[in-house]
Design a protein around this nucleic acid. Structure first.
Lengths: 96, 96
DNA sequence: TCATCACTTAGACAGTTGTCAAACTATCGT
DNA sequence: ACGATAGTTTGACAACTGTCTAAGTGATGA
């Protein structure tokens, strides 16, 4: 009996996630987001020594591989961790 | 009670492995190795469309992050999958 | 010993990527 | 309407990386 209803990830998707995690800064950003589950963009900026432009770039990378979601809320941008994508990724790796 | 006696990976080690897996070709090579558990270098060459030099480069990358081990056996090089490193990596990621 | 085989090293090149400053867009408060 | 705030886009640059060819190393077999 399978207890995981997670989506199956293509090889491309797995690679995209691995690539996203392979940068030190992006990895740290990602861990912050995952730990908080949902953060404001500006919280990340004050927590990490990083330019707004660079943070924006990294967030877009993390979003494009499905690990996070970005949503505008007025002036701000909410960042939410997509645990389902993360679980799917781990499930895929576990098969190795 | 912990059932996993795996080594704890530093953040650097995790990053090194993620980086190693982020290249399409290297990922494919790695999966071959993991599937076979132990292969000869030349088997990989015949299984993948790749130059000897490039393969050598990728194997060294995979070795330097601890995912595989390389051992000379006469003319040949044996490639073995280090499951303990892989398990340690997954354990680390699972904590996210 | 000599040619071949299996792989490594060195060097070069093209493409990618992380980074920042500066200019831009959009929203909020006054 | 205006200025401040939050984030994005653009453009540029340096550093890195994957790839190949060519030359080198070392073992094997005749």
């Amino acid at each position: 009996m399978k207890s995981k209803p997670t989506t199956v990830l293509s090889a491309r998707a797995v690679l995209a996630i691995s690539r996203a995690l392979s940068d030190p800064r992006r990895y740290e950003i990602f861990r912050h987001i995952a730990a908080e589950s949902c953060t404001a963009c500006s919280d990340l900026r004050s927590a990490l020594p990083i330019t707004a432009a660079t943070l924006s770039h990294h967030l877009k990378e993390l979003e494009s591989c499905g690990l996070i979601e970005l949503a505008r809320r007025g002036k701000f941008v909410d960042v939410t961790f997509c645990r389902s994508a993360w679980d799917a990724y781990l499930t895929e790796l576990k098969q190795i």
